[in-house]
């Protein structure tokens, strides 16, 4: 069997059939990039020792169009997304698994780019991918590549973080600029093309979280405002904790470019996706301290206190606007689509 043609070759059905071609794909493409001791066991299930403590597990399916966008691609996104889901429980992420569904005809060169990007993301984050799988679907039955990743982690002793723990009086912190990821994706969508220096904020947040929980172990809630944006995350937290939320528009960091793109397309930055931001709810007394810690970390430089938790039977998220008014910030209805009216 000659080596994979990573320059001009494409994915064929046999690459997913479980035969020689499948194992060639794994040996020549995945293993060299993902390489780690546990993966090298080469078994269908990977065995490892577990440290003491409470364990968390999460799984996340990744579909994104386009697959490559300013600031990242589906590969790095699939690693960051799952690490972040683990981290939002306060846990230290240990290992990842990845399964990739490829469409027949998908260029091997693109696949290699994605694999390298996953490998880099996982290596930088120091969270290895220790098991995986690949399947191939017929042409027309997939959208190039779908990646599903799972992650496990260990919650440090004494940490109890959950979406239902917000208390009236708690303060709400946001780790930085919102809307970068969504705008980066929109800028590269067919038909919408606009040019901007905005890049996806896709990043692994576990190290930031680790410093946060070390300093302030009594953080109540952590969540990454991905799809649906900040507005949706705040509504989720309000509902889970049965509280209201009051935020202040002028405190929410939004880049000028993101504001511009939103005005142009009729969108609201509060509903635009992020892939490297977190929202944190903590007791008022710890907030300043936490803010300092966050601002010292590269991923939290622009962190800000954006509001507080209130008592509210309606569980509304209400925003004081820069203009001086007050308005409800509702859940996202449908999809955020560029509008003309």
């Amino acid at each position: 069997m000659s080596r994979l043609d990573l320059k001009n070759g494409v994915i064929e059905i046999i690459h997913g059939s479980g035969g020689r071609a499948s194992s060639q794909l794994i040996e020549e493409l995945f293993i060299p990039h993902f390489d780690n001791e546990l993966l090298r066991q080469g078994n269908d299930a990977t065995a490892f020792d577990i440290p003491a403590g409470r364990m968390v597990i999460t799984t996340d399916a990744h579909v994104v169009s386009p697959l490559f966008f300013p600031g990242g691609d589906i590969g790095s996104l699939s690693v960051h997304g799952t690490i972040n889901d683990v981290a939002m429980s306060g846990a230290k992420p240990l290992y990842l698994s990845a399964s990739i569904i490829l469409e027949e005809g998908f260029p091997l060169a693109d696949l290699e780019k994605i694999v390298i990007s996953m490998a880099n993301a996982s290596r930088t984050a120091n969270v290895p991918i220790i098991t995986g799988d690949t399947k191939v679907v017929e042409r027309g039955k997939g959208d190039g590549a779908f990646i599903s990743t799972s992650g496990i982690g260990i919650v440090p002793e004494g940490i109890n973080i959950s979406g239902d723990l917000a208390q009236p009086g708690d303060l709400i912190l946001l780790s930085g600029f919102i809307g970068d990821h969504g705008v980066a994706i929109l800028s590269s969508r067919e038909g919408l093309e606009f040019s901007t220096a905005i890049k996806s904020d896709s990043a692994a947040l576990h190290e930031l979280v680790s410093e946060m929980v070390q300093t302030v172990p009594d953080i109540h809630c952590l969540r990454d405002p991905t799809r649906g944006g900040l507005a949706t995350t705040l509504n989720e937290l309000a509902r889970q904790s049965k509280v209201g939320i009051q935020i202040y528009e002028h405190t929410i960091p939004v880049r000028a470019e993101v504001k511009g793109a939103c005005e142009l397309l009729g969108l609201d930055p509060l509903y635009i996706a992020n892939e490297g931001k977190l929202v944190c709810i903590c007791p008022k007394k710890s907030a300043e301290n936490l803010l300092n810690i966050m601002q010292q970390h590269p991923l939290g430089k622009e962190a800000a206190i954006i509001g507080q938790v209130t008592e509210d039977k309606q569980q509304l998220v209400v925003m004081k606007t820069t203009f001086g008014g007050q308005r409800v910030v509702d859940w996202l209805a449908g999809e955020q689509l560029p509008r003309i009216c």
Binding site: L316, R327, V328, A333
Partner: peptide
């Protein structure tokens, strides 16, 4: 509701029903 609109006025963000619902609820409630 905007999630499950029954009439056009609840769909378009320019529609009076959608504007009432999304921004006005605070006042009415």
């Amino acid at each position: 509701t905007p999630e499950d609109p029954k009439g056009a006025c609840m769909v378009s963000s320019e529609g009076a029903c959608a504007a009432y619902y999304s921004y006005g609820r605070y006042r009415t409630e």
